[in-house]
């Protein structure tokens, strides 16, 4: 007979002379293992509810867009209000090549990466010539311009209808298996992004990045190649966002700029970053899940949810530790910087 004992900070399980402890006090958790285990096990609990699984798939995709955005904000020291531009470029590249030339998802992935890299490289000088509000305004306008283009060249982009009927990444005999598979694929995508961004931030590049983020002029004086870093941190996250667009195309098999390019989609991603914790890459995951679950739960309230949801978001932004969001709340009792910072003496 297994005996369970609930203590203040842990659950103890005893069987004969063996004892296992499960620490429930968050500050003692081994974060990545616990987090990934929960995410891996989620389909076991919700497999009979494909809509919940799809909601989690969407949350993974939101996080996969928010993580590179957080990296970009740190690396360029600028707030990009339009990363969905690359979601659109990636999505339309994949969809058009798949529909018109019959390219497989693997080929459209390669094309998506190439097209996003070329366009991001062409636009990357904006990080050098524009600062603060000016950079934000430029990035804000670009996706809206692209949205107009999808209407103007309606023959190609199909305007408000969008492109439909692209090949799926996977097809199983039972549709419910498809949804489980797509959940795991989206999880894999998100975790790969997290790993890439986390490794980058913890590396020597991350130290230079922190220097650029703190003060560009000081960083330049210290020998950091500021321009090269800013271009890299504009281009690399843009490619990652483009890949998320590719994934959406081959998962939902429908892609309309009118859904992803307007400002309200971007607002949601920014809120995920802020609520999750804009200084922490990990924060994008709880942020994305919280926003998705909250939005879905409040739907039951009917039309009232349209003002309850923003009220809750405002409350979260106001009451969560400033700039640190959910992840900051969790890390509060365990003060250890997750990404390196250079503390420059300003006097």
């Amino acid at each position: 007979m297994v005996n369970f004992e609930l203590r203040r900070d842990r659950i103890v399980a005893r069987w004969r002379d063996k004892k296992t402890e499960w620490v429930i006090e968050p500050r003692y958790w081994r974060n990545p293992i616990i987090g990934i285990s929960i995410l891996l096990m989620l389909p076991l609990f919700v497999r009979s509810y494909p809509h919940i699984l799809t909601m989690f798939t969407t949350a993974n995709l939101y996080a996969a867009i928010a993580i590179p955005l957080a990296l970009q904000m740190l690396g360029t020291g600028r707030v990009n209000f339009g990363p969905q531009l690359y979601l659109g470029i990636g999505g339309y590249t994949a969809a058009l090549l798949n529909l018109h030339f019959g390219w497989s998802p693997a080929m459209t992935l390669a094309a998506t990466i190439t097209v996003c890299a070329v366009i991001a490289l062409a636009l990357s000088p904006t990080t050098l010539i524009a600062k603060g509000l000016y950079f934000s305004l430029i990035t804000l306008i670009l996706p809206l311009t692209f949205l107009d283009v999808t209407y103007i060249w309606g023959d190609l982009f199909r305007g408000e209808v969008g492109l439909v009927g692209m090949s799926p990444l996977l097809t199983f005999e039972k549709v419910s298996w498809n949804y489980i598979a797509y959940y795991y694929l989206s999880l894999f995508l998100m975790l790969t992004y997290l790993l890439f961004c986390d490794r980058t931030v913890r590396s020597r590049i991350g130290i230079s990045m922190a220097a650029v983020n703190e003060n560009e002029n000081v960083a330049r004086m210290m020998g950091v190649r500021v321009d090269a870093y800013k271009i890299f941190f504009y281009v690399a996250p843009s490619i990652l966002t483009g890949i998320a667009g590719w994934f959406i195309v081959h998962t939902f098999r429908t892609f309309a700029g009118v859904t992803y390019l307007p400002l309200d989609f971007m607002t949601k991603i920014l809120i995920i970053v802020i609520v999750g914790g804009r200084a922490f890459l990990y924060g994008a995951i709880p942020g994305a899940y919280l926003i998705s679950i909250l939005e879905d739960s409040l739907r039951g309230l009917g039309p009232v949810n349209y003002f309850v949801f923003p009220l809750i978001l405002i409350a979260l932004i106001v009451f969560l530790p400033r700039g640190e969001g959910l992840w900051g709340l969790y890390k509060k009792k365990r003060p250890r910087d997750y990404f390196p910072k250079l503390h420059v003496r300003r006097e």
């Binding site: 009979s48 509810y49 799809t54 969407t58 419910s176 429908t254």
Partner: peptide, 14 residues
């Protein structure tokens, strides 16, 4: 669209 897809599945499958 993602929400529409999610809801469609809910209505039909659940």
């Amino acid at each position: 669209i993602p929400k529409a897809v999610e809801i469609y599945k809910k209505l039909v499958m659940n």
